[in-house]
């Protein structure tokens, strides 16, 4: 479905060149549920932005269903069915929650009922939120949940959620894991969640570990998860120059 071929990405900062992705090769199959995990700064969000077209890779190619989309714009990729829920969502002065969700929704889902469903799926009450501005008055967790909801009324080939659990309270988190499971069950789209949470890792068909800009491991959940959930010393994947802080 989606193929990343030898993707590298180098950022230019004051100190000079900074290699962030060092040759990522990855194939994502249709209808599968992937969780990408790995240490902070490993390159997960950078990879997600490259998939969405927000960042251009320094080298390498991206193929979607047999088509080279490396040069496609963000808008084009959105129209092809790729969606990305930001790790840090922007705020908008003067745009209401309902309006943003409507903008996001597919043509046949621009009705209030769909907006209500999406808000319910992230544990927000429609009445309380639909007419509020997506501005600084929303709390961090509220904003994050609305950001997630922007992907829920789209028929996507590939939905990427960047740390959807960040800042979400316990009760809403339970609701969210249900929503992701249901999304997986009801659609044949591919789901990618970037996460550090055990309960999200458990939802995966496959887990991908990204560390220091490369795919350090990729395998079925059953094979990878036990190795992750251990003490730092005994952690198979934690060995190496930089210690990987274990999940538990």
């Amino acid at each position: 479905m989606l193929e990343l071929k030898n993707i590298t990405y180098a950022a230019q900062d004051e100190k000079g060149k900074n290699d962030i992705l060092n040759g990522i090769n990855l194939t994502l199959e249709r209808g599968r549920f992937y969780v990408i995990t790995g240490p902070n700064g490993g390159g997960k969000s950078t990879l997600a932005k490259i998939i969405m077209g927000i960042l251009q890779p320094t080298s390498g190619e991206i193929w979607l269903e047999g088509k080279n989309i490396t040069d496609a714009s963000i808008t084009e990729r959105a129209k092809m069915g790729i969606g990305y829920s930001f790790q840090q969502a922007p705020r908008f002065k003067g745009i209401k929650v309902g309006e943003l969700l409507n903008l996001a929704a597919d043509k046949d889902r621009k009705k209030r009922a769909y907006c209500e469903t999406a808000l319910r799926q992230v544990g927000l009450c429609t009445q309380d939120y639909i007419n509020r501005d997506v501005d600084a008055s929303l709390s961090g967790g509220e904003l994050k949940r609305i950001e997630i909801a922007t992907l829920l009324n789209r028929k996507l080939k590939l939905a990427v959620f960047d740390e959807p659990e960040a800042g979400i309270d316990l009760w809403s988190f339970a609701k969210l894991t249900e929503t992701f499971s249901a999304l997986h069950k009801d659609s044949d789209g591919t789901i990618v969640i970037i996460s550090h949470q055990e309960r999200i890792l458990e939802l995966a068909d496959e887990i991908i570990m990204i560390r220091e800009g490369v795919v350090a491991a990729q395998d079925a959940k059953e094979k990878i998860l036990p190795g992750l959930l251990c003490s730092p010393e005994g952690c198979e994947l934690g060995k190496g120059e930089k210690k990987y802080a274990c999940i538990r």
Binding site: M52, I54, S73, I74, T75, A78, K79, G83, Y84, F86, A89, P90, F92, L103, A104, T150
Partner: peptide, 13 residues
């Protein structure tokens, strides 16, 4: 970021 977010929803720049 605001422009990028809306572009990821399918709007042109």
């Amino acid at each position: 970021e605001q422009i990028i977010k809306l572009m990821t929803l399918g709007l042109t720049e």
